[in-house]
Design a protein around this nucleic acid. Structure first.
Lengths: 229, 229
DNA sequence: CCCCGGACAGCACTCAGTTCCCTCGCACGG
DNA sequence: CCGTGCGAGGGAACTGAGTGCTGTCCGGGG
């Protein structure tokens, strides 16, 4: 089943989830988990700094992946699009284990402590996005403000699509939903963001133009955008 | 200074902050706090469900204010503007006690546990915004998605302005910074959002128009926006 | 006068997380 | 073949947050 790298770590995750699903998160003590896994209590805290961490065993690695992905960006690429690509890495991590993700979702929905923990995890992704955008938008007017707002918008769009997929018990197509949500964000902030093909039923259109450009250019831009829609 | 309603609660907050600033949050136990305040340990947990809550003593009330404010909205008002007004209530709560807010900011910046807690508080504001926007945008295309994204953007703009004010030790003008940040968000998502007076040094202008409107109306809108800028 | 309900004190308990020390297995060089 | 060192794991004991329960004080109403 799982890889052969850390047998003990996986055993702890498996034991923990069995108990969490049977009797609930708060009704399960760390001693229960280590007893079922047949290991010492101390070993649990060697692999997971806290009881909550066992619920999100792969976020640490994914966060590192996202940060590395953004660090390796081509300096010429569209930063907003790049962040949108990064968020797809996060989605992939959820969709790799659909049943696990759905079980975890049900758990975090019920336990306030886990929701708070998940929040802090999501926040770290958002800060990674924002740090990258700040670097790319430095010098532009309101660079850090725009970086923070765009990072928050991308994260919110991702979460919206992810949660509706999780609520559907993994039935819906998560890629499609995230693509659609990111299209909305890109059309709102779009640098060169395309107007997103699936906006045909949208009733507003956003046009961005340099101030000072001649009016004929502005009108031309509008016409091409409307025609393309 | 503070109201005369709960003397014990205020005494606990005062004692807690004295110790937190002296020797740090994690180096201070609840027993230390209650000893300094001269009350029983059990009384602390009567007023604050957890040790972290004593650091954010007025957020619960503020969150209730925000929710009530949004619930009392005129159904005809611009929902995005309404949320922007709600976020000013949150800002006011910080600016009412500048020194307290700055001290708390320094504390939360250092202690990971407090950052996580603050995150969950901010998240509840955001969910309050999103719930209101979902109600107002219901039926529109992508209503819940737009509600979530706009709520996140407004919260991020507020946080950006708030944090830069807190970093300035309360020297900068927080109202102005938040106004500016909200102007950016409104111009990105604007329903009828004004182009925000302080965007004069901005080099792009965003125009939103109903698809299907006659072209002369679109041009008229552009001209009036450019002239007003 | 007693009773009752709420605010508070204080003890005892659970459990998460940490510290310290022990054992076992395993490779290493002598 | 035998120390010797070392890293992974086991386990006891401790700290501190949070909870439950019991007892006490106090003010107001029978």
């Amino acid at each position: 089943m799982s890889s052969t790298k850390p047998p003990m770590r996986d055993a702890l995750v498996a034991a923990a989830f069995r108990l969490f699903l049977e009797r609930g998160y708060e009704q399960t003590t760390v001693d229960d988990i280590v007893a079922l896994a047949g290991v010492g209590r101390r070993s649990f805290f060697r692999y997971f700094p806290s009881k909550e961490d066992v619920v999100f065993p792969d976020h640490e690695r994914c966060l590192a992946d996202v940060t590395a992905f953004l660090d390796a960006s081509d300096p010429g690429c569209d930063p907003v699009q790049r962040v949108c690509e990064a968020v797809r890495l996060v989605l992939r991590m959820y969709t790799e284990n659909p049943t696990f993700s759905v079980q975890r979702y049900r758990l975090t929905k019920q336990v306030p402590g886990l929701r708070a923990y998940e929040l802090s995890v999501v926040w770290r992704y958002e800060r990674s996005f924002a740090a990258y955008l700040r670097g790319r938008l430095k010098g532009l007017h309101d660079g850090t403000l725009r970086a923070d707002v765009i990072a928050a918008a991308v994260a919110a769009a991702h979460n919206n699509a992810l949660r509706s997929w999780l609520r559907s018990d993994g039935q819906d197509d998560p890629e499609e939903a995230v693509e659609h949500a990111l299209g909305y964000v890109q059309s709102s902030f779009g640098g060169r963001g395309a107007p997103a093909a699936d906006q045909e039923s949208e009733d507003v259109v956003v046009i961005v133009s340099r101030r000072g450009a001649p009016m004929w250019r502005v009108v031309q831009e509008i016409e091409s955008t409307l025609d393309g829609g």
